[in-house]
Computed example of a mutant assay.
Amino acid sequence: MQAQKLIYDGSFEGLLTAIFVVYEERIPNAEIVEERFYEPDFFAEKNHIYTDETKAARVWDKLKQFPQFSATVYRSFLTELREKESYILKAIQYVLKTKNAKDYGEPAVLKLAQWTKQIGREKHRMEAFVRFKRTKDDLYIALVAPDFNVLPLIAKHFKNRYADQQFVIVDHKRNYGIYYDLKSITFVTLDFDANNLKDGLHEEEQYYDEMWQDYFISTGIKSRINKKLHQQHVPKRYWKYLNEKNPL
């Protein structure tokens, strides 16, 4: 049977809309593809899906009957992996049919659980390793480039932890960020040049970096240094965020 490709805009609501269309039109052989990854296929029928918040909400309300599973669906979407839509659709179809959201013998359900574990580790590390720099305008800024799109998952943590200071966390890999204005979190689109950050920093930041460096060196015991263990707890790819490792 000829496959039908459903092409959506890459948003979570767009994906849910596409899933709604699969059910509404009873498409037996659907393939949901993010627009930026779409490659023309002579043997497949294509259908552009336009995001419909009402349809997306209906699917999401259905999934919320299974709280843990719905969370894995959202987190799996944030992995940005090219095959995510296929596994998400299959997992949803299986769970809604069987009402069993924890059957890890089903490959799609297992795959989403594995992705959720991976993105959970990335979320935890971002919350642990993000470091803010104070700017001349008294805005605190942090630069990150996580493997997965975890900013939506860490926003609440930083809002609660730094409730008394304005901050922005910039994902310069994805050109957007989360901005906190002492009241609420806003997602902002940014065209950010990290090379220009140093000129905008508060003069005290240089001394903070030097203090971190001195503290890090003075508290280290050379005879007990275990580089392998250290890198297990603080992988090298996160060092660029740490003042003691990579000061601006």
Rank of each mutant, 00 (worst) to 15 (best):
D181I: 14
H157C: 05
L153V: 03
T54A: 14
S223N: 11
I27P: 11
D103I: 00
I169W: 01
P67Q: 04
R75I: 10
A18E: 09
D103Q: 02
E13S: 06
Q4G: 01
E39C: 06
K84H: 02
D138Q: 12
G177Q: 02
P28V: 13
Q232L: 04
F69G: 03
V73Q: 00
Y104N: 00
H124M: 01
E35W: 01
L229N: 07
Q4S: 08
H233F: 11
N160D: 10
D199K: 12
L15F: 05
K90D: 12
S86T: 10
G10M: 02
K99D: 08
V59L: 10
G120E: 06
L143K: 09
E34H: 03
F187W: 14
V234Q: 05
L78I: 02
K64N: 05
T219W: 02
D52R: 10
L81K: 15
V59C: 09
R75W: 01
K117A: 15
R26H: 12
D164P: 07
R161T: 08
D193I: 01
E85L: 03
Q65H: 07
H157K: 06
Y50M: 09
E39V: 15
K46G: 04
K222G: 15
K97N: 13
S70V: 13
L143P: 11
Y180Q: 09
L151H: 00
T72V: 11
R174H: 06
E122K: 09
K62W: 07
V144Q: 04
F192A: 03
L63H: 00
L81C: 11
I169D: 05
K62P: 00
E83I: 06
S11G: 03
Y215G: 03
T51C: 02
Y215H: 09
Y23G: 11
H172F: 10
K198H: 01
F20Q: 03
N175V: 00
Y8C: 05
N100I: 00
E13T: 14
K236I: 11
N226D: 13
H48E: 15
A155T: 04
L201S: 04
S11E: 08
G14S: 02
K102Q: 06
V33Y: 01
R237W: 03
Y176H: 12
N100S: 03
R224F: 06
T72Q: 13
T54F: 08
N246G: 09
M1E: 05
W212F: 10
Y238K: 02
V22W: 00
F69R: 06
Y87G: 02
T219N: 13
Q93R: 12
L89E: 04
I221G: 04
F77Q: 06
